[in-house]
Design a protein around this nucleic acid. Structure first.
Lengths: 142, 142
DNA sequence: TTTACACCCTCTAGCTACTGTAGGTTCAAG
DNA sequence: CTTGAACCTACAGTAGCTAGAGGGTGTAAA
């Protein structure tokens, strides 16, 4: 049996985060010691590892909820899990494209700055005048 | 003189966002009509455009505050603005690197999924077992 | 002039995914 | 039996907005 602190260390999660996952129903309520402290077994360790890994891959908590549900029903079709992963991949690719455009623009700003006074700073100038941008970047970059 | 709605349209900002920027001190308090409605001039339009453009390039509101301050003092050295932009560029490049690793992993998951039952779904399997990952991705992908 | 209606006002709460703090209790070692 | 780390609950705060309630303003047509 693991305490919450041990579980946290093993999974690289903060203690509060574990309690938060329990609160929002992502992890089941665990057993308790006589004094009321949480005690975890291996299934909870696996489940939390799954969650953390999915988070590292950028899945939202809602997506993870779905994935966990699929994982709990081995007889269901794999198609849904596949769709979720494809959706996530698509999102990542969109973000990559946006970030690449941002990098281009930022590089140009930084390169053109000659280091004088702010009155003729390229960085500030570009920010003032969108028409100086070569790329489109309507969406916020993140 | 512009109403808040017109300013919003011109800058591609939501009305509430403009009020929010005012509230956190990013935009100055504007003049008001007799009935108490906000009225804006060209300087506010320029300032808000600057803010939105910087947001599109991914600068944080704190960074934007600094950039605005520099922009208000044309005699200051450009070095600070340059440093802020370089910091932002570095952040973007770090995110790009992380996202590229995520894309690799997600692509692999999706490609290997054969479309059967969840019991042998590669997507879920990879999530269950971190050791199946080829790349490191300790930080959350965003 | 009155009435309609889009727009504006303030205030408060909600979103994601946590993180931190306060004030108190439990556990295990010595 | 005492000490001190680790645990408990409950609530507030983070970024950067966004949405809603409940009401007031501005303007143009009838």
């Amino acid at each position: 049996m693991l305490t919450i602190g041990t579980l946290a260390k093993r999974t690289g999660t903060k203690v509060q985060t574990i309690r938060y996952y329990e609160q929002i129903g992502l992890l089941p309520e665990p057993g308790r010691s006589a004094g009321g402290q949480r005690r975890y077994g291996d299934s909870e360790l696996d489940r939390l590892s799954f969650v953390r890994h999915a988070r590292q891959l950028g899945f939202s908590l809602d997506a993870i909820r779905e994935l966990l549900d699929l994982s709990d029903h081995p007889d269901k079709s794999c198609a849904e899990a596949d769709a979720i992963a494809r959706r996530q991949l698509k999102q990542v690719e969109q973000r990559l494209a946006r970030l690449e455009a941002l990098r281009t623009e930022l590089k140009r700003m930084v390169h053109e700055c000659s280091g004088g006074q702010t009155s003729d700073c390229r960085v500030l100038e570009v920010l003032r005048d969108h028409s100086e941008c070569l790329t489109e970047h309507e969406e916020i970059g993140a």
